[in-house]
C-alpha cells in the first residue's frame, strides 16, 4: 500500500474554494446565509485544529479520567446543541427527558460497543473510545433532534385526537401511541436509509478515513458494519427512551392534557 499523502497548509487552503463557491451561489441567489457559512466554516476549522492537538496529547498519554472527561464533554455538548438549536417551546420536563435519554442511550451503547464488540483493553483506550463515542453521540443527537421536533409537532397538530382518545377512556400511553410510533419512525428513518445506500451510493466517513490511513479495506468494512449497527442501536435506544418518558410530560398526574 502507498504511503499516505500528507495534506499541507496550501492543499487544505485550496479546499476552501468550495466555501467561496457556496458563498457565490447564495450571494447571486439573494439567500442571506453568507454569515452562517463563514462562521460555520471558521468554527469547524478552529474546532478541528484544537481537537487534533488535544487528541494527539490524549493518545500519547492514555488516562481513564481524560477519556471519560472527553466523552462527558461530547454528550454535554450534544445535549446543549439539541436544546439550543430547537426553535420552539419545549417544557423543562421534556428538556430533562432529553438530557436523560441522550446520556443513557449513548453511554450504554458506547460501553456495550467498546467492551463487548470491539473488546478494547484497557477500557479507556482513547484511540477507540473517542471516535466511536463521537459517531454514536453525533447520530443520536440528530435522531433525537428530529424526534423532539416530530413529537411536539404531533402533540400540537393531533391534540384533538389525543383528547378524543382520553374522552373514550384511553390511558395517556394509548392515546399517544400513534404519535409515538410516527415519531420513532421519523427519527430512525435517516439512519436506516443511510444503511441502504452504504457501500453503493457512498463510502461512509469512518471507513474512508481508515482506508485513507492505510487500513486494509476488509478490516475497515468490518469496523464500519459494526459501527453502523452500533449507531442504529444507539439512535433507537435514545429515541425510544426519550419517547417513553417524553409523552408523560404532556400530561399531569390526573392524566389530563397540560
Amino acid at each position: 500500500m502507498n504511503d499516505i499523502i500528507d495534506l499541507g497548509f496550501l492543499q487544505v487552503s485550496l479546499a476552501y474554494i468550495c466555501v467561496l463557491l457556496v458563498i457565490a451561489i447564495v450571494r447571486i441567489r439573494g439567500i442571506r446565509r453568507e454569515r452562517e457559512i463563514v462562521i460555520s466554516s471558521i468554527r469547524m476549522t478552529l474546532q478541528l485544529i484544537l481537537v487534533g492537538y488535544i487528541l494527539v496529547y490524549v493518545f500519547d498519554n492514555p488516562n481513564p479520567l481524560a477519556t471519560v472527561a472527553i466523552v462527558v464533554v461530547m454528550v454535554a455538548f450534544a445535549i446543549y446543541t439539541i436544546l439550543n438549536r430547537f426553535k420552539g417551546k419545549m417544557s423543562s420536563a421534556l428538556k430533562r427527558v432529553v438530557v436523560f435519554s441522550m446520556s443513557f442511550g449513548t453511554l450504554s451503547c458506547i460501553a456495550y460497543f467498546l467492551v463487548v464488540v470491539v473488546r478494547i483493553s484497557p477500557w479507556y483506550e482513547p484511540q477507540y473510545v473517542v471516535p466511536v463515542a463521537g459517531m454514536l453521540i453525533g447520530n443520536s443527537m440528530t435522531g433525537i433532534s428530529l424526534g423532539v421536533h416530530s413529537l411536539l409537532d404531533g402533540m400540537t397538530t393531533r391534540r384533538h385526537m389525543v383528547e378524543e382518545a382520553l374522552l373514550l377512556g384511553a390511558t395517556p400511553k394509548a392515546a399517544t401511541r400513534e404519535i409515538i410510533n410516527n415519531t420513532f419512525d421519523a427519527a430512525v428513518m435517516p439512519t436506516i436509509n443511510s444503511m441502504i445506500g452504504m457501500g453503493i451510493v457512498f463510502l461512509p466517513g469512518m471507513m474512508t478515513g481508515q482506508i485513507l490511513s492505510g487500513t486494509v479495506p476488509t478490516t475497515a468494512i468490518a469496523y464500519q458494519i459494526a459501527i453502523m449497527l452500533g449507531i442504529l442501536g444507539a439512535v433507537a435506544l435514545t429515541i425510544i427512551t426519550m419517547l417513553q418518558l417524553g409523552y408523560t410530560t404532556f400530561f399531569n398526574k390526573e392524566d389530563q392534557l397540560r
Partner: peptide, 15 residues
C-alpha cells in the same frame, strides 16, 4: 382513566 370509562363524555366536535 377508570372514571372516564364509567362516565363517557361526547364532545361537541368529536374527532
Amino acid at each position: 382513566v377508570n372514571h372516564r370509562r364509567r362516565a363517557v363524555m361526547l364532545s361537541q366536535e368529536p374527532a
